[in-house]
Nucleic acid binder design. Sequence first.
DNA 1: CATGAATGAGCCTTCATTCAT
DNA 2: AATGAATGAAGGCTCATTCAT
Lengths: 188, 188, 188, 188
Amino acid sequence: MTTAPLRKDAARNWERIVAVARDLVDEGTPLQLNDIARRAGMGVGTVYRHFPTAEALLETVATPSLEALAAHGARALADDDPGRALAGFLTRTIEAQVTDASLSTVTAASTDALPRTTELKQTLRSIGTELLERARDAEVVRADLTSDDLVPLMCGIAFAANVHGDPAARVQTARRYLTALLDGLYVR
Amino acid sequence: MTTAPLRKDAARNWERIVAVARDLVDEGTPLQLNDIARRAGMGVGTVYRHFPTAEALLETVATPSLEALAAHGARALADDDPGRALAGFLTRTIEAQVTDASLSTVTAASTDALPRTTELKQTLRSIGTELLERARDAEVVRADLTSDDLVPLMCGIAFAANVHGDPAARVQTARRYLTALLDGLYVR
Amino acid sequence: MTTAPLRKDAARNWERIVAVARDLVDEGTPLQLNDIARRAGMGVGTVYRHFPTAEALLETVATPSLEALAAHGARALADDDPGRALAGFLTRTIEAQVTDASLSTVTAASTDALPRTTELKQTLRSIGTELLERARDAEVVRADLTSDDLVPLMCGIAFAANVHGDPAARVQTARRYLTALLDGLYVR
Amino acid sequence: MTTAPLRKDAARNWERIVAVARDLVDEGTPLQLNDIARRAGMGVGTVYRHFPTAEALLETVATPSLEALAAHGARALADDDPGRALAGFLTRTIEAQVTDASLSTVTAASTDALPRTTELKQTLRSIGTELLERARDAEVVRADLTSDDLVPLMCGIAFAANVHGDPAARVQTARRYLTALLDGLYVR
DNA sequence: CATGAATGAGCCTTCATTCAT
DNA sequence: AATGAATGAAGGCTCATTCAT
C-alpha cells in the first residue's frame, strides 16, 4: 500500500474533493483550492491537508484515466499484430486526452506532483516504447520515430483537436487527425 | 498608411515597449502591462496608451512574423509544383511557430485584438486554402483534409515540438514531426 | 437569527471595520475598502470577506439608524392623532438623515446591496404610507400627496439643510425646513 | 469686457468645448477633461488652457441658464403682486434646476471657480432676497423664512424631484413639490 | 496657441497560503 | 482533523495633470 488507510470521514472528504474537482475539470474551470473547498462544503484547510497543491489534486483526478489507459496498454501488448496494437493504443490515448481535460495538462507536464503519476506515466511510456519497437521491427512504422516522440505527438494531436472549432466533434476530429498522422497527409 | 505617424518620442516608447515585450515572449514570461512598464522604465499609462490590452501587445509582437509568413506564402503560390509548394509553406509555418512563441498564442486564439492580426490570419488561411486545393487537385494530398484542418494541425505540431524535452532541438524536432505528418508514421 | 454567529476574532474585526467606516462616514470621507483596511490595521482581504462592496459596508453602517427609525415608526403608528403621528415620524426621519450621513446615500439609492436594507427601507415606506393615509383620511393632509413622495421629500429637506451653510445648526435648520414644508411657506 | 477677445480659432475651440460639455451634462456623464478633448477633437492641453478645471467648465456650461434666470428675476421684480412675483421666480428656478443638470451642482456648491458664476449667483440671491422681503412685507409669506433659505430650499426641491423615480415626469414632479412647499403639506 | 504623450498615484479585486481556534 | 478567517502580494485599470514638441 502506498497510502495509510484513511479514517472513514477523511476518506469521505477525499472522495468529495476529487468529485468536485472532476466536475470543475469537465466544465473547464481551473482548479482553485478555495473554490473547491467552498463547493465541497468544507474548509480550505481540509482540502490542503489532502492535496497540498492544485497539481496534486489534478493528478489525482487524472489517475483513473491513466490507469485505464495502462490497462488497455497491457491488453494491447497481448495483440500479436504489431501495427494494430500500436494504432489501437494510440487511438485510445487520443480519445482519452480529448475526452478528459485533466489528461492534457498532466501528460504534457514535465514534472509531477505525485509519485503515482510519475509511475503511471512511466508505465505508459514503457508500453508505448514496447509497442513501437515491435511495430518498427515488423517494419510497419518509419524508422526515425523514437519512443520519445509518442507523448509529444499524442499531445499535439489532442491540442490540434482542441484548436479546431467545433467542440461537439472533438473526439471525431482527434481520430481523424490521428489517422492522418498515421497514414500521412500525402498520398503516396 | 496603416497608422497615423507617431511623434518621435512616442515612437521611441512604442518601439521600446514592443522590444521589451519581445524579450518577455522569448523568455516565456506572460505579458503583464505593469511589468512591461517597469522594465521599459516608463509609466503604466504610457503602455496602456499604446496597447490597451496585453493581447494587443502580443499581436503587435507577432505581426512581423505573420507578415513574413504571408510574404513567403505569396512566393509559394508562384511555385508550380503543388506538393512542394504546400510542404514548403507548412514547413515555414511550423518553423516560425516554434521559433516565435508569440505565434502559438496568436494563431490558436479564436478572437483577435487588432484588425491587422485578423487580416493577416485571414490572408494566411487563404494562402493555405489555395495551396491545399491545388495539392488536392493534383492528387498529392488525401481528400478528406480540409483547409479548416491546416491551422489546428500546424498548432498541434508546434505544441508537440514544445512538449518534447530538448529546447535546443526544437526546430529540428518540429520539422521531423511535420515530415512524419506529411508522409505518415506508418510505412506503406 | 439573521446571521450565522461569527467567531470571536472575526466578530472583533467586523466591529472594527464598521467602527472605522462609521468614523469615515461622519467625517464625510467616501468609503474605500483598501483605505478602511489600512486604518483598521488589517489586510484588504479581511475587509472584502466581511463586506464585498463599499455599498454593503455603508448599508451596514446605516442599519442601526434605520432600525431606530423603524422602531420609532412603530410607536408613531400607535398615536391616535394622525397629524401628530405623521409629523413626528417625519421629524424623526429628517433628524436622522441630517445627523447620519450614511442615511442620505442609502435612502436615496434605488438599489440595495443587503437584503436587510431592502427590508428596512420597505418597512419604513410602509409605515410612512400608513401614517400618510391616516392623515389623509383625517383630512389634515393635502390630497395630492402620495406615499411615493415621502422619501423624495425627506431626502430633499435633508439635502436642503446640508446645502445651507452652517453645519452646527444643521439639525435645527432641517427641522425648520420640515415645518415650513408642512405648514407651507405662504401664509394663508 | 471681462475677458480679452479671443482669436477666431481659439473662440471656435471654446465654443466647441462648451458644446461638448453641454451634451455630456445633458446625458448625465461626469465631465472629464480628457474625455472632452477627445470628443471635441482637440488636445487636452487646449481644453485645460480654456478651462483650468472641470468646475470652471461646468460653470461655463451653466452660465446661460443662470443668466436667463437672472433676466427672469429682473422681470419678476417689476411685478407688483409680491406673492405672484416670488412664486413665479421660484417656479422658474426649479424648472431650470431640474431641466439643466449643470445648475444643481453649481447652485449647491459653496465655492465657485469663475468670478462670473459668483456674480450671477449673487445677483440671483439679491433678487430672491428682494422678492422675499416684499412678500414678507405684504405678509403673504411666513416671517421666519430668510433669504438664506431660498437657495437651499430650491436645491432641496430639485433633489427631491430627482430622487423620485420617473425621469420623464421630473419637471412636473418638481412643480408639484414646489406647490406643496408653498402651500404646505398640511391643510389648514 | 495647440497638441497629445507621458506620468504615476491610487483604487479595485483576486487568490494562494498560513494558522489560530 | 477540520475549520475558515486573515493575510497581503500582485495585477488590473483609470484619470487628473504636466510638459516636451
